[in-house]
Design a protein around this nucleic acid. Structure first.
Lengths: 120, 120
DNA sequence: CACGGTGTGTAGTAGTTACTACACACTTTG
DNA sequence: CAAAGTGTGTAGTAACTACTACACACCGTG
C-alpha cells in the first residue's frame, strides 16, 4: 500500500499547487466557479465530509484540470456513462472486466490500443 | 427498441414460470427465503417500488436461477465488485469500456475469449 | 365451513446523500 | 487601518434509498 491518498487530500494538493502561482485558485474562488459553498469545499478537502456528487466532481475536475475518472475513483464512484455502457450488455462486460482484474497494466493497455487501432 | 422489460416484469415472469411446476415459488415463499416482506416483493414485481438493493437482488437471482449481473442491470445498477475493479485503474478501464461501447457483441466476445485463453 | 396459503393496500421509518446558509476569526492589500 | 479576501465551525435540511409491520380480501382444500 504505497499511496492511500484520499479524495480530499488529492483535491487540496491539486488546488494548492495551482494557487501558488495563480490566485484564482483560492478555495473560495474555486467553490464559486463550481457553484458550491466554500465551507462545503473546505470540509471536503479535509475529508470531514464525504465527496460530493458526480456532477460537482466533474466540475472540480475540469476547474483543476484533473482526470474526472480518477477523481471519481478516489470518491469511490464510477462515471455514470460507463455504468450505462455496462448495463446495456451486462454479461459481456462483467465477464471481460472480471477477467482483466488481475492482468497487468501493460496487458490491458495493449488491449485498449488494439481495439482503438482496429488492428485485430 | 424491442424489449424494454422492467426489473419487476422480469422477476414476475421468472417466478411465475417456476411456480407453475413448483409450488415453492409462490411470492410469499420466495420472499421468505430471501428474507424480505412479501408485500415488498409484490410491489417490486409490479414496479410500484424501485428495485431493492444489491444484496437482495443477488439473493433473488440465486433463488430464481437468474444471472445476477442481468438482474442488477435491469435494476439500473452494476455489481459492486465490478465497480471496485474499475476503481483500481480508472483511466485504463474507462478508456477500454468507452471504446467498446459501439463494438458488436461478437467482437467483444472474441476479446473476452482471447483474454481468457491467454492466446495473445 | 374453517383454515392455510395466496397476493396486495396502507402507513411508516431509519439511514444516507448531497448539499445550503450564515457567522466567525484571521490575514493580506490599498 | 479599513476593506477585501482567506479558510473554517455550526446548524440544518430536502430528497432519496431500502426497507418493515400489519391488515385485508380472496381462494381452494380437508
Amino acid at each position: 500500500m504505497p499511496k492511500p491518498t484520499t479524495f480530499g487530500q488529492f483535491l487540496r494538493e491539486s488546488r494548492e499547487a495551482k494557487v501558488a502561482t495563480d490566485r484564482t485558485f483560492s478555495l473560495r474562488k474555486v467553490a464559486d466557479r463550481v457553484g458550491i459553498e466554500p465551507s462545503y469545499l473546505s470540509k471536503i478537502e479535509r475529508d470531514e465530509q464525504p465527496p460530493p456528487g458526480e456532477g460537482v466532481i466533474r466540475l472540480l475536475a475540469q476547474d483543476l484540470s484533473e482526470d474526472p475518472d480518477v477523481l471519481l475513483a478516489l470518491a469511490g464512484k464510477v462515471s455514470s456513462d460507463l455504468l450505462a455502457i455496462i448495463r446495456t450488455r451486462p454479461r459481456l462486460f462483467a465477464d471481460l472486466i472480471r477477467q482483466l482484474k488481475n492482468m497487468p497494466d501493460h496487458a490491458v493497455l495493449r488491449l485498449v490500443r488494439e481495439v482503438r487501432d482496429g488492428s485485430w
